[in-house]
Amino acid sequence: MTAALEVTGLSKAFGGLPAANGISLNVEAGERRLIIGPNGAGKTTLFNLITGDLRPDAGSIRLFGEEVSRLPTHRRTQHGMARTYQIITLFARDTLLHNIVLSLLGRSRTRWDAFRPLERHRELFDRARAALERVGLEPLAQRPISEVSYGDKRRVEIAMALAQEPRLLLLDEPLAGLSREERVTVKKLLDTIPRETTVVMIEHDMDTALDMAERITLLHYGTVIVEGTRSEVVADPKTREVYLGH
């Protein structure tokens, strides 16, 4: 069976400083993978390389067996990849519903329709409402993003990604900045992601993240230090070294 995501020898340097230094990892279809590492380990750089926001200096990226490292971001998304951002980048002046619609349009031929009014495309709005319902935000559908709470924005981020029914979902710190209750809500939401969707997640909140992940990859200075099951990684002395110093 082909892996959902296969990264080989991925490297990227900024002005001589390597942010990713020969990263290789394999994520099986349906797997839940957690990526951890101290600040500046290259976690978000890895995501940006996978999505195509950054061009790698070397290495290859395969999505479900297909080489994508030379494709622009939007083409990779068409292969079934979706992501959420660490720093929220939503369309602040638009409604929650409209944000989801933009996401749905990204994977629908309807986006090239330049004549029929948007709101005539009922099926889009029905699906968008369903996506909001799934994260419990349907009642706020008509509110502009700028008027809802931080926790709600995070859920909209996730709803936008899930609405596309991605085969591979990259979550960049989905729990960052949330209150304890909000974290529980988002955690429950993440648990409902179907197995057809492979999940790769960057997260600092170990308590919540560790029990979700089946395998864990520890990055440090742009390289994979340890990879394995939860207990393997926790038990590995190199993990201790990275987090506690020598």
């Binding site: 971001t73 939007h74 002046r93 933009l102 996401s103 990204g106 994977r107 986006r111 004549f115 009014p117």
Partner: peptide
């Protein structure tokens, strides 16, 4: 009509958040 269409909605999206739009699958 152009502005009010799905294409127009995508266009406004590329104006506000071009990077986000390409991540959503739009060819900016």
């Amino acid at each position: 009509k152009f502005i009010g269409s799905p294409f127009g909605a995508a266009l406004k999206g590329t104006r506000d958040q071009p990077r986000r739009m390409s991540a959503l699958g739009h060819d900016v």
